[in-house]
């Protein structure tokens, strides 16, 4: 589903990604862990071209997206993204947030989009928040609306960049529950996270990023019980 070949990214002279290679299969849940500044977000943002790779190839569904920069909006419809800071549109209600892209990008009729938005809000456990503005929602509720908004485009892949890091501890669970449900439904997911419990339980594969490369990868059991590299062990001993 996603294939990354020798991905490099520079910000000016700063080299952030130094040759990332990976292949992510349909329905797989891949969790990316690693220290701050190791390039996790940059890697994730390259996958929907929020960052333009400096060098290397990314294929999604067999098509090189780095070669088809013009069709960027088409690509992004297939790849949903959820941000640490939610980034809901504050001047729109929850429903309007969700409807915007289906209506404007896909040309879906308003009432159909509204119906879909209401369904999605129910799916993320917010059946009574249709006409509520983001400012009236808690952090956990905001993030669930943001997930519903991304799902409204029927993406094939969902990217999550530390979706629970900005939340109060008591709200982390409700968001992780929604993500877990998505994973069980077979969504292909790439999740940058510090929630090791989630990574262990829901992840099919863990990537440990260190200084711009994937330093080690494996199943949750391999990575958490028996990491091979010293750096991985050092990182895990700090966060577990």
């Amino acid at each position: 589903m996603i294939k990354v070949v020798d991905l490099h990214k520079y910000f000016g002279n700063l080299q952030v990604l130094k040759g990332v290679n990976n292949e992510i299969k349909k329905g797989e849940v891949v969790c990316i862990i690693g220290a701050s500044g190791s390039g996790k977000s940059t890697f994730l943002r390259c996958l929907n071209l929020l960052e333009e790779p400096t060098k290397g190839e990314i294929y999604i569904g067999g098509v090189s997206i780095t070669e088809h920069m013009k069709d960027i909006n088409k690509l992004r419809q297939k790849v949903g993204m959820v941000f640490q800071q939610f980034n809901l549109f504050p001047h729109m209600t929850a429903t309007e947030n969700i409807m915007l892209a289906p209506v404007r990008v896909k040309g879906m009729p308003q009432d159909e989009a509204r119906k879909k938005a209401v369904e999605l809000l129910r799916k993320v456990g917010l059946p009574d928040k249709d006409d509520v503005y983001p400012s009236q929602l808690s952090g956990g509720q905001k993030q669930r609306v943001a997930i519903a908004r991304a799902l409204a485009m029927d993406p094939e892949i969902m990217l999550f960049d530390e979706p629970t890091s900005a939340l109060d501890p008591e709200m982390v669970g409700e968001v992780l529950a929604v993500m877990k449900q998505l994973a069980h439904e077979g969504m292909t997911m790439v999740v940058v996270t510090h929630e090791m419990g989630f990574a262990r339980e829901v992840g099919n594969r863990i990537l440990f990023m260190d200084e711009g490369i994937i330093a080690e990868e494996g199943t949750p059991e391999e990575m958490f019980s028996n990491p091979k590299k010293e750096r991985t062990r050092a990182f895990l001993s700090k966060v577990l």
Partner: peptide, 10 residues
């Protein structure tokens, strides 16, 4: 805000 909008395909 721009990133969220662009990530949705707008």
């Amino acid at each position: 805000q721009m990133e969220a909008a662009r990530s949705l395909g707008l």
